[in-house]
Write a protein that binds this DNA or RNA. Structure first.
Lengths: 193, 193
DNA sequence: ACAAACCGAATGAATATTCAGTCTACTATA
DNA sequence: TATAGTAGACTGAATATTCATTCGGTTTGT
């Protein structure tokens, strides 16, 4: 057994515990002592692996953005129609967030917080750049309404966020059929004609 | 001059200072001493007017939801077409948030936080209930796509939120024409046929 | 003269991070 | 094989700071 296995295990436990606790309690309301306890680790150990509390947040952010990007691009099919690809991406992201609510809440909460350095944010945009390009190209080629890319991306991403929030808050169980409805509505909204 | 004027002045100053500070720094990162300083008041005075820090947040929430409801319903015209009324509501809320970014950020941040008691939340739903009914009726009467009301509300509200966030983050200046585009896209998405 | 509004120093409870020392697993040596 | 050495992993009590709230006393308006 290599030392680095133990190393990695505790490191991961700390990241996981921080993610879970911070998502439910918020940054300032989860003491490091609580993180330590949940991770099954002494308080001091945390600082053997991480610079600071903020550093942990930044690493979680990077990990989750990477996972999100991977989920978003899963099952890509360049031969499918534009609409089919749109639907695929939309559903990919929706399911990823629906199935990983803690990750969703973390990203919603910290993407626009001062804890995440601009550096970290920019470095991780690449994970989903292909889909941004996909939408930009749709607008350019006339398959989508002629809109600023940023606005297009925001509206589509926003529709996914809305659905996931609805589901997580237990206001409305988001079944597959309802998700399809929402996706279709968004498509009808952004498509050309 | 009535005592209650001074009373009200300091009270309002405390509410305003808390709103501004908490929106930029977050709840746990804005000490009461800072609120006191910004409000031009002694720390102790705050506790003459409010039960606790959380009580202040709850009162701000109630105030802002009320203002939001008023803005949303402004210039109602029952004789206008359904589409026109939809556009009016959408634009009302968009402009309200665009013009009051601090209020927007506060509501985004605290609407789903444990600081706001369920009681406070429920009591303040009435301010925008008419618009929820308007959308529900649209779906029922066939002017809108046949969808669960909650989903409909979420999608439409979400599109406004997306636009305002885009504007506030300086990613894209939301001009009147872009707002119209976004509203039109959302309309095309939720309308029937 | 009185009651409410106000002040701000004091209190007591937390908290992030540090640090002096212990443990563990592996290496080099005898 | 047995032993000592060592570097990194780990511990948790101690530190120094920060904060929400309290309270004894002062000011203000009537």
């Amino acid at each position: 057994m290599k030392t680095s296995t133990v190393n990695t295990e505790k490191r991961e436990a700390i990241l996981q515990a921080t993610l879970e606790l911070i998502t439910t309690n918020g940054f300032h309301a989860t003491p490091m002592s609580m993180v330590a306890e949940r991770a099954g680790v002494a308080a001091g150990t945390i600082y053997h692996h991480f610079e600071s509390k903020e550093a942990i947040i930044n690493e979680i952010y990077a990990q989750l953005k990477q996972r999100m990007g991977k989920a978003l691009l899963a099952g890509e099919n360049p031969d499918a129609s534009y609409k089919e690809r749109f639907a695929q991406y939309w559903m990919n992201l929706f399911h990823h967030f629906k199935n990983n609510p803690v990750e969703f809440i973390f990203l919603e909460q910290y993407t626009n917080s001062p804890f995440i350095s601009n550096n970290t944010k920019e470095e991780n945009q690449r994970h989903y750049q292909p889909v941004i390009d996909f939408l930009a190209e749709g607008a350019w080629s006339g398959q989508l309404r002629n809109m600023e890319t940023e606005l297009l991306v925001s509206l589509v991403y926003g529709s996914i966020v809305s659905c996931v929030k609805l589901h997580i808050s237990n206001e409305l169980q988001m079944t597959e059929s309802r998700a399809q409805q929402a996706m279709q509505a968004m498509w009808d909204g952004v498509q050309n004609n």
